[in-house]
Amino acid sequence: MSSPYDPQHAPAGDVGAALMMIDSRLKSIHDGKDGADPEQQELIEQFAASLGPRGASDLLDGACTLIFMFVTWLRQAHEKHDKDVIEYVVPHLVSSLRMMPRSIRPEAIPTMAGLVIAASTGLSPSLWRGQYGEWTPEEMNPLEATAFLLAEHINRIADDPDFATRLITTALSSVDDA
């Protein structure tokens, strides 16, 4: 039976812009910066301000699409070793988010865990989240952090700091070619 929260019912959003933001964060961490580069932060804020309401919504959907794609890859990688992605990825995500009390409010953590669990069961994170109302400003940092942490987790598994970004760009280019 099909669910109204299946990914085929969800907008993909602006995956490219969401990936650009996550990749920028990944690169700042790997370049030895602490992620709080004021120049980079200003550029991200200018970009976000230029989006407008529709663009911001597309960016949110794009981030959720990234989460879905990252979790799908993680689920497949874990299944090859007879492991459950929820058992291995969600606790790591929750503990990582809990270590960021200045940027991640504790009440947002269950929602981010829910997004990952929804994706791991084949549901669209954006549609799953949408059933509880509009996104709140307090969920923006946790959403970005969730996508970042999943990408970083994939990069560590692959032992390649650019693997998650290439995974998505390859998928996007194969869609463009079709």
Rank of each mutant, 00 (worst) to 15 (best):
N155A: 04
W73S: 07
A108Y: 00
A158M: 15
R54P: 00
P106C: 00
T165A: 04
V15K: 04
Y132F: 15
I67M: 10
I29V: 13
Y5P: 00
H92M: 14
G35L: 02
S2V: 13
R54S: 12
D14W: 10
S2M: 08
G32P: 01
L43F: 10
T65H: 09
H9F: 15
G35Q: 04
A49Y: 01
A36L: 07
C64G: 11
P110I: 07
P110S: 09
E107W: 04
H81R: 14
D159C: 01
Q131P: 01
H9M: 07
A63F: 10
L150C: 03
D159T: 05
D84G: 03
I104G: 06
R166E: 10
I157A: 08
E152A: 13
L150I: 04
S50E: 07
P142S: 04
W135T: 10
A158T: 06
V85F: 08
D31F: 08
D162Q: 12
L150N: 10
E144S: 12
V116T: 11
G13I: 02
S173E: 12
S57T: 14
S28W: 03
A145M: 08
T72N: 10
G13P: 05
L26V: 14
L26E: 06
I29G: 01
A48H: 06
T170H: 10
G13S: 06
I104Y: 03
D37L: 05
G32N: 03
R105L: 11
V94R: 13
G55E: 09
L51F: 08
V71C: 09
W135R: 08
S24Y: 01
D84E: 11
I29M: 14
E134R: 13
